[in-house]
């Protein structure tokens, strides 16, 4: 039983780490601020969930998994909200999205500036 759990948790942690790396790579490579924000989103939803799930499977007492669940819940609440706040702040400050080379501004829907 515990061997199965260990394998499952290892798989979750491995996948989570891979997603984290993906996010970091995107964060480093993408040319535009908003695109980088998307890359952060990858690492923050699924990777967090996977790593926390992996840790939960490792616990042997009953309290830590509950705390991890709470942490996951709060991260899932706050991280998209933080991304939105950041996008909104950048938009307010006049940062406009660019194309994938980071050179030209994107066409915006009518009425936006």
């Amino acid at each position: 039983m515990s061997a199965v759990l260990a394998i499952l948790s290892g798989a979750c942690l491995l996948l989570g780490s891979f997603l984290l790396l993906t996010g970091a790579l995107g964060f480093l490579r993408f040319a535009d601020f908003y695109a980088r924000l998307h890359a952060c989103g990858v690492t923050e939803t699924l990777a967090t969930a996977l790593i926390i799930l992996g840790l939960m499977l490792l616990s042997d007492s009953y309290l830590p998994p509950f705390k991890l669940l709470l942490i996951l819940l709060f991260v899932l609440f706050s991280s998209p909200t933080a991304s939105h706040a950041l996008a909104k702040a950048a938009w307010n400050a006049g940062v406009r999205p660019r194309d994938n080379q980071g050179k030209r501004d994107l066409p915006l829907p009518a009425g936006e500036r």
Binding site: L19, T22, G26, A39, V42, T45, N100, L108
Partner: peptide, 26 residues
């Protein structure tokens, strides 16, 4: 949905030339 879009983004990020066409819409 989250898992599907994650997979989509993963393959965009790991290409030699990151491939994406950003869009803004209402």
């Amino acid at each position: 949905q989250i898992i599907a879009s994650n997979l989509d983004l993963v393959q965009r990020v790991w290409r030699r030339e990151p491939r994406y066409q950003p869009q803004v819409a209402r």
